[in-house]
Write a protein that binds this DNA or RNA. Structure first.
Lengths: 116, 116
DNA sequence: GAAAAGCGTAACCTACAGGTTACGCTTTTC
DNA sequence: GAAAAGCGTAACCTGTAGGTTACGCTTTTC
C-alpha cells in the first residue's frame, strides 16, 4: 500500500500495463536520475507489484496486479456500503446467464460478445 | 492517495465506517498522543476523505467515501485487464435490462431484486 | 464565574523517503 | 580482449512526515 503512495511508482505501474519494459526504457520516461528509478523499481519488486527477469544485459519488468486486488478489496468496504465485491460477483453471474439465454435465442448477438 | 498511505489514517477510516465519532474517541483507540491523531484527522480532512462538524465542545468526524471512489477507479485499470470500470458499467446496464425483461415475464422475481 | 472537559495548533526533534554522484558487475559488440 | 551498454548498489545529503510536550481557545459543569 505504501508502494503506490509515490506518484513515480504509480506511473511506472501504468507504463507496465502495456506490457514488459526494460529498466532503461522506464527510467527514460522520467526526469529523475536512473538510479532513483532503479530504487523505485526495487520497492515495487519487494512489494510484489512487479516481477523482473534478466534477459541478456537488460532487466525486464512485468506487472503483477495480483497484489493490487488486495487493495481493491480493502477499498470495497468503502466504495459500496458492504459486500461490494460480493455484489460484483453477483453482477458477473447475472451477465453470463443473460448471455447464455440470449445466445439460445439469436446468433446475431455473438458480435456483441467481444464488444461487451 | 497519500492520505491512505499511513496505517493510522487507514484505521481511522475503518473506525468511521460504523458512523460518526468524536475526536476524543478516535484518539482513544491509538497509543500515540492525542495531538498526533488530531493531525492525522487534519490530513484526512484536507484530503476530503472526512467531514467534521462542531457539536458543543466536541468535534464529530464523518466518513466521506466519495474521494475513495476516485482511487477505486484508478485501481480498475489493473484489477481487470483494461476498461474495467467501463465493463462494470456495461455489467450494471446489462443487469438492469435483465431485471426489466424478467419483470415483464414474471412478478415472482421481485423478491430477488433486493437480494441481488 | 471558576474549574474541568474537549480539541486544535505551534514549536521542536528524529527517522526515513527520495534524490544525487560515484562505482562495480555482467553481457554484448567490434 | 577491450570498449561500451545496461543496471544495481553504496554513500551521502536534504526535505518532510509523524511523534512529543506545551499552550490556548471554547463549551460545559457545579
Amino acid at each position: 500500500m505504501q508502494a503506490i503512495a509515490d506518484p513515480v511508482r504509480r506511473e511506472i505501474l501504468v507504463m507496465l500495463r502495456g506490457g514488459r519494459l526494460s529498466a532503461g526504457r522506464i527510467a527514460g520516461h522520467f526526469r529523475i536520475s536512473r538510479p532513483a528509478v532503479s530504487r523505485h523499481l526495487r520497492v515495487l519488486r519487494q512489494s510484489g507489484l512487479v516481477r523482473d527477469e534478466l534477459v541478456g544485459r537488460q532487466r525486464l519488468y512485468e506487472l503483477d496486479a495480483g497484489q493490487l486486488t488486495e487493495l481493491a478489496v480493502w477499498l470495497g468496504q468503502f466504495v459500496r456500503p458492504r459486500g461490494w465485491e460480493h455484489r460484483l460477483d453477483a453482477l458477473e453471474t447475472e451477465v453470463y446467464r443473460t448471455r447464455r439465454e440470449r445466445r439460445t435465442r439469436s446468433a446475431a448477438d455473438q458480435a456483441k460478445e467481444n464488444t461487451a
